[in-house]
């Protein structure tokens, strides 16, 4: 399926990325992600995923796209970007990615998983991000790399004296 003109314009900055391109953007648009649970980290992750064009499904609402206020404020037309309408009628077989790992990780002493070789969150901290924003952005990044078929192996990191470090 070719990208529509409005999708090309909206996601042009992602398409520019070597790791994404048009084919990668199509994967992001075609891969519905389930957001299971509620937390600040998941809200941020959901917002980033929606902004990248990924359809989100909130398991807790039993039947709708996630439509929380934070999501709507980040990507007002995210729920309209659903090229893979077929999956709505067959949710059981749709590809889903559980990002609750990150919520659990946060509650377990700050351990989270990030793909090996990724630039590390010091750069995000430099933007004055809170931990929730940092972790949420990373959760979205991990999911996106998974969808794009990029490296999915994880490394553990730990928060030491306010700085995130690889273990």
């Amino acid at each position: 399926m070719a990208l529509r003109e409005d999708q090309i314009l909206r996601y042009s900055r992602q398409i520019l990325l070597r790791e994404v391109g048009g084919r990668g953007q199509q994967k992001l648009l075609d891969a519905p992600v389930t957001v299971d649970g509620a937390s600040d980290v998941l809200d941020v992750a959901a917002a980033y995923l929606a902004a990248s064009g990924t359809p989100l499904f909130d398991r807790t609402t039993h039947g709708g796209f996630l439509a929380g206020t934070s999501l709507e404020s980040f990507a007002p037309d995210a729920v309209a970007v659903t090229p893979a309408k077929g999956w709505l009628g067959s949710f059981a077989t749709a590809p889903t990615i559980d990002v609750s790992l990150f919520r659990l990780a946060v509650s377990n002493g700050g351990l989270i998983g990030v793909p090996g070789g990724m630039p590390w969150p010091g750069e995000l901290e430099g933007q004055g991000s809170s931990d929730s924003v940092t972790l949420g952005a990373l959760a979205a990044l991990v999911v996106q790399r998974f969808v794009l078929g990029l490296e999915s192996s994880l490394v553990k990191v730990r928060n030491v004296d306010g700085r995130w470090q690889r273990e």
């Binding site: 090309i8 314009l9 398409i15 391109g21």
Partner: peptide, 14 residues
Amino acid sequence: CPMTWVRVKLKLES
């Protein structure tokens, strides 16, 4: 720019 490269990149992919 940057739509010049976006258009060319998409065409190259096809």
